[in-house]
Design a protein around this nucleic acid. Structure first.
Lengths: 347, 347
DNA sequence: CTGAAAGCGCTTACAG
DNA sequence: CTGAAAGCGCTTACAG
């Protein structure tokens, strides 16, 4: 590749001054004459000089850049999240880079982390399955020292987490269905249920709500998708499993892992001839914008996504500046938005 | 910040060899004894060494990194696009970074471009309003030499563009409505219509289709949204303008700028008591996954989004390697998917 | 107010 | 097979 960028040296040479002086002029040091500064600025402009930040970072350490690793960045869920992250990054003088994983495997995640570390990113927010990482990974990549996990609580608490309060979300979703008159409440879970069995807060909330209302949990009413992220955020996969379950299983309430899977479930229920909510009431999770547009409008668990993103960055910066602190968990409060898909209750 | 990363020097010191030897061992040079290589690898592992790529890039030039700048990355439209970009980047040995603009202004765009250039990114794919850039910007940031514009054709052709064939898309959408029996076909356009008046290919296709079928264009039937990207990808804004237009304007066909705005339009039409497609047939653009889930299912213009993303990266790499070539335009073919929202025709 | 020199962590041409 | 030295483009401590 040919020479594309002007350097401090080019500017210095053009003016017959030293590189040091050019550097000082460009970086607002006071000990440069106004006259000199003006001439430097002119030439800088003329040459279209753009600082090589990688060189300066090499000297000073720290890139003032953080990155967000996601396994499905184009999920509308992230619209507000990223706005929040971007704003926080800007507020604190950082740049936010985003990378998208091809799949949610350990190898893919580790690959991304390593590439970003090679670029000497200051910190990382990770929205992916952290459980895929082994102990060696956690140590080698210093996860605890410069990463924040996003969106799910991963015990044992070995690193920072920012997440919606998923236990509460699962609880109030289920409670709402119970209070709407549902007797047999199914939960539709993503395909990674097995992996996450012991830490799935939404599921735990579902269980607790059943328990608090003296309803026995039935294994039969736990629907697990085959492949979660394959296409369309799981909508298709949800559709397929519901098609099947509707033939074999009786239920009158359905709590879906998220809104996208609820879309698929609703489609299947409608096709089967059953009515929503009269025959089956449905609740989703995440309250996407689209959930107001579908028919029936979807009841969903909602929370401040912008705040979630903002908090994640704040927490990451605290972590970077205080690597010695113990890991923390920050939970964002959740609420339920009741719409047609569960309104009025079961008859 | 304290010392966080091991260096080649650390490894060399631990082994009592030179930095050069360590470098050679780690980078597969043949002139290192197997014995030495093995010991180097051991210590590398033990120290958790992660190469400082910014340092090596400084020496060698070129970062093998490209970036995608988007103004709304969490639009589901980009799911497949990014998959395609990621795959192409991987196939050609590059890493793909993504940044999301806060707004679609010149300042925001220039800020992002400049930050990425400071990081000495090899090339840029830009999905934003390139018209906001002035001549000085184009020159200073060498847009022509290392950028590809994504998603829209921006004449005069001063840089590379990868885009769906929007003229054809607008044409076949309108033609389909005409052939379905619509007599008065409105087009719903995004708020940036004024800026893009002379280059909006979808609109041009709409006009041409009307013309080819001897239907006169009526200014009254061009609906322009107030604020496009404000919220929910324009769905809300589309809803609002339709609410208004339905009171004052007669039409029996509606071609929407994209699927998200179609969602808003459909909502407004349904609320007004009119039937889709019997009273008003609706066609969207982009064929998002969600468009199959709404009611009525939405007719839309579709194209291979994965390919669009893949092509954009391919084109960018050609551009980087051949800065002297003339700007090119690559159009991806489009088709129409007919669904309930226009099926059967107007009665 | 100006500038020479050292150094950040790599890579490379060259000598031994 | 091994290593000393120069250099990528900055920044900084120091001398004048």
């Amino acid at each position: 590749m040919k020479k594309r960028y002007a350097t401090l040296k080019d500017i210095a040479k053009a003016l017959g001054v030293s590189v040091t002086t050019v550097h000082k002029a460009l970086n607002g040091h006071p000990d440069v004459s106004e006259e000199t500064r003006k001439r430097v600025l002119e030439v800088t402009e003329k040459l279209g000089y753009i600082k090589n930040e990688t060189a300066s970072n090499l000297r000073t350490s720290g890139s003032n850049t953080i990155a967000f690793i996601s396994s499905n960045i184009s999920n509308p869920f992230y619209e507000q999240v990223i706005k929040g992250m971007n704003q926080a990054a800007e507020d604190f003088g950082y740049m936010l880079l985003i990378t998208n994983l091809i799949n949610d495997s350990r190898d893919d995640l580790v690959r991304s982390i390593e590439i970003l570390m090679k670029k000497r990113i200051d910190g990382l927010i990770i929205a992916a399955n952290m459980l895929a990482l082994n102990h060696q990974d956690l140590r080698k990549y210093k996860i605890r020292e410069f990463c924040v996990a996003f969106g799910t609580v991963f015990p044992p608490e070995e690193f920072d987490v920012v997440s919606p309060n998923n236990f509460k979300g699962g609880y109030i979703a289920t409670k709402h269905l119970i209070e709407s008159g549902c007797k047999k409440i199914a939960m539709l879970h993503s395909s990674n249920f097995e992996i996450e069995k012991n830490l799935n807060e939404r599921f735990k909330g579902y269980l607790r709500a059943l328990q608090d209302h003296n309803i026995e949990f039935s294994q039969e009413l736990l629907f697990i998708q085959k492949q979660f992220m394959s296409k369309s955020y799981g909508t298709q996969s949800a559709y397929e499993i519901l098609k099947e379950k509707l033939k074999t299983t009786q239920f009158d309430g359905l709590f879906c892992y998220n809104d996208e899977t609820a879309y698929g479930a609703i489609e299947a229920i409608k096709e089967s001839g059953l009515r929503i909510p009269e025959d089956i009431a449905v609740v989703g999770y995440d309250n996407l914008e689209f959930s107001r547009m579908i028919s029936p409008q979807l009841t969903s668990i909602t929370f401040d996504k912008y705040k979630l993103g903002y908090k994640a960055v704040e927490m990451l910066l605290e972590r970077i500046n205080h690597p010695e602190l113990n890991p923390r968990i920050e939970l964002i409060d959740v609420k339920i938005v009741v719409r047609e898909s569960s309104k009025g209750g079961i008859r």
